[in-house]
Amino acid sequence: MPNSKLKQAFESKKFVVTAEAGPLKGTDITELELVAKLLKDKVDAVNVTDQQSSVMRLGSLAVSHLLVGWGIEPIYQVTCRDRNRIALQSDLLSAAVLGIQNVLSLTGDLPSSGDHPQAKPVYDLDSVSLLSVIQGLNEGKDMMGNPLVGKTDFFAGAVVNPGADTEAAYELQILKMEKKIAAGAKYFQTQAIYDPGLFEKFMKRAEQYKVPVLAGVIPLKSAGMAKFMNKNVAGVNVPQDMIDKISQAEDKTKTGLEMCSDLIKQLKPLCQGVHIMAIGWEKKVPQIIEAAGL
């Protein structure tokens, strides 16, 4: 099995670009295929979200496999919300035989935020213990130490939130980052960044770990979206001047995309890559990449 292309990209020290493809609710994959093929060769890998925001939809395992078939490097996102340790390990083995090489370990939002708020949250494992499970599978054993017939070769990633608001929250993010690295995280992607200054401060702290970090970016579509994120999304803080700029813009789409590529230019010297979460604007990702000069 060839090595993960994402891993190779990091090793080559190039500025890595990843994007995101959210599976839809239903079985029609026309749009998904269209988006995926637009992103092909423009990005190093594409994240496939796992029941994002706890909204039930097509699975990330199946979609990651489809991406492999379309010649696109998938990052299989796995959350701990919906499956216990037996199902998670089994799905990881399935992913390996389906040619998936990158896994991103996440805790997962609570079901209360999604469209099935009455669901039982699982959280048998968490993002840290899942990483150690992946490390074990790569070594040819399950989490109880039982040998596997044929092992996996996953390149495992994790997330970190550099925008934590209090000292406690910030220190805990660093602590958890350390734990994730110890458990086998080979790279990180972050929550959406809007303030390069804050991110630089975080990177100074994270540099010591020598683990590549992809800065997360979300293009702004409106002032309302920015305000919503500031209020509701932990660690996201869109500065007031950006909110003003987008609210005064005549062509909000154009301005939003420009602001995003400008931001990427500012983040580029600080980290090893960028993760673009377009949230509905997937087709515009190539435009952002081009404008950012990547």
Binding site: G108, D126, D165, Q173, A234, G235
Partner: peptide, 20 residues
């Protein structure tokens, strides 16, 4: 912890409060 996490908080902690 709403998610019973034993290895540190999730990314949803905001102003010292829970994402729930």
């Amino acid at each position: 912890c709403a998610k019973s996490l034993v290895n540190g908080p999730c990314g949803g902690s905001k102003n010292g409060k829970c994402e729930a």
